[in-house]
Simulated scan of single mutants.
Amino acid sequence: MTSPLQQKIKITGPSIVTANRTGDGAVIYRTPAHRWSDRLSDAAIVRTADDARALLAESVADDIGAVGAYIAPVEIGEDGIRPGNLREKIRQQGVTIDLLVSA
């Protein structure tokens, strides 16, 4: 399997880097301050493949705080940043199953 850093990156609009927090699995976003945030509004926005590759490489290197980092599209409107595809809309809503299991 090819590493995400070795794959050809195609950017067709504003994008961010997202991952899951190692402690609790929460969806998180890489910020311009080189940290992780659970708020999409804090995400660093990239617009070129080179910028996306650099942000992704930095994010993947932070494997203690986050796992599964990848580039995701976003839409930018008057009301702020919104997920740019169905997968990210679902991830932003939270888990899609009931985590409470009856004994």
Rank of each mutant, 00 (worst) to 15 (best):
E78G: 06
V60N: 02
K89D: 09
A43F: 01
V17C: 05
V27M: 11
I76H: 02
L100W: 13
T48S: 15
P83T: 01
I71Y: 09
T22V: 13
Y29R: 01
Q93F: 07
D50N: 11
Q93C: 14
L86C: 05
S59E: 01
R87H: 11
R47C: 08
L99M: 14
W36K: 03
P83Q: 00
P32Y: 02
T31H: 04
N20D: 09
L86V: 10
G77T: 10
Y29G: 06
D51N: 12
G65M: 10
D50L: 12
I45A: 03
A19C: 07
L40G: 01
D38H: 09
L40T: 04
G94T: 08
R47Y: 06
A49Q: 07
V17P: 00
L40I: 14
G80T: 06
G65Q: 15
T31L: 02
G77W: 00
A33Y: 07
L99Q: 14
G68R: 06
A44Y: 09
I81N: 01
A26T: 07
I64C: 08
R35F: 04
V101I: 14
D42Y: 04
S15Y: 02
E75Q: 14
L86N: 13
A72N: 06
A61S: 12
P14C: 04
V74T: 01
P32S: 04
N85M: 03
L86I: 10
T48H: 07
R87S: 12
P14D: 02
R91D: 14
R47P: 00
I90K: 12
R35H: 09
G23V: 15
G84D: 02
G94A: 07
G77H: 00
R39E: 14
P32A: 02
S59N: 04
W36G: 03
I90S: 10
T18H: 07
N85I: 02
P14W: 04
E75I: 07
D51G: 14
R39S: 14
K89Q: 15
A26P: 00
E75G: 12
A26I: 03
A52Q: 07
R87I: 09
V27F: 08
A69E: 06
R30F: 09
A33E: 14
Q92M: 13
P32M: 01
G80A: 01
R53I: 10
